[in-house]
Simulated scan of single mutants.
Amino acid sequence: MIGATTPVDVRDRAVLVLLATAGIRNGELRALQPHDINWRTGEVFVRRTKGKRDRVAPLIEEAGAALADYILRARPKVDSPYLFLSFTPPVGPFRCASPVSRIVQSRLQHSGIEFVGGAHLLRHSLATQLVGQRRPINEVADLLAALMHGEDVLAA
């Protein structure tokens, strides 16, 4: 995994863990604001979904720890409402999908994982992980359907 030696490393780890565990899309990640994280309930409020509806995604402990580390230690101290920021001047939010996709591609390739595609493919790794944990296939299918349709996966 990514060593947390630089602020960019800390940010990239938070990006990867959140994409892989919460099933959010690239654009949803870029739209996140610090107040969208509900630390007490372990949830992420996701706005601007593909289905034009807001939803809630789970925030597992590892993702919460990575986000907290980023916010407390690495996030640039600039006046921006967005959670994830570019370190390339001028420091500010990611304006398009390509920087997030580059983070995913470069970090996975650096880890020795041949990866072709963008950040969207990490959404599907969540299902693979659930199947590997022997979760019932109908539960995995329901989760994927909910994520694809922008539904609140924690409502049930």
Rank of each mutant, 00 (worst) to 15 (best):
G3T: 13
A4T: 10
T5D: 12
R13E: 02
A14S: 14
V15E: 03
V17C: 12
G23H: 07
R25S: 13
N26G: 07
E28Y: 05
L32E: 00
Q33D: 02
P34N: 02
N38G: 14
R40F: 12
R40E: 14
T41F: 13
V44P: 00
D54C: 08
I60P: 01
A63N: 12
A66P: 00
I71F: 10
L72S: 12
K77N: 14
K77C: 13
V78L: 14
D79N: 12
P81K: 15
L85P: 05
S86D: 12
F87Q: 05
F87R: 02
F94V: 10
C96Y: 15
C96G: 10
C96E: 13
S98I: 11
P99W: 05
V100K: 09
V100F: 09
S101V: 08
V104H: 07
L108Y: 11
Q109C: 04
H110D: 00
I113E: 09
I113F: 01
G117H: 02
A119D: 02
A119Q: 00
A119F: 01
H124L: 11
H124A: 04
S125R: 06
A127D: 01
L130W: 02
V131T: 01
G132D: 09
P136W: 00
N138C: 06
A141V: 08
D142A: 15
L143F: 06
L143T: 01
L144S: 05
A146F: 03
L147T: 01
H149D: 02
G150R: 01
E151F: 09
V153A: 07
A156Y: 10
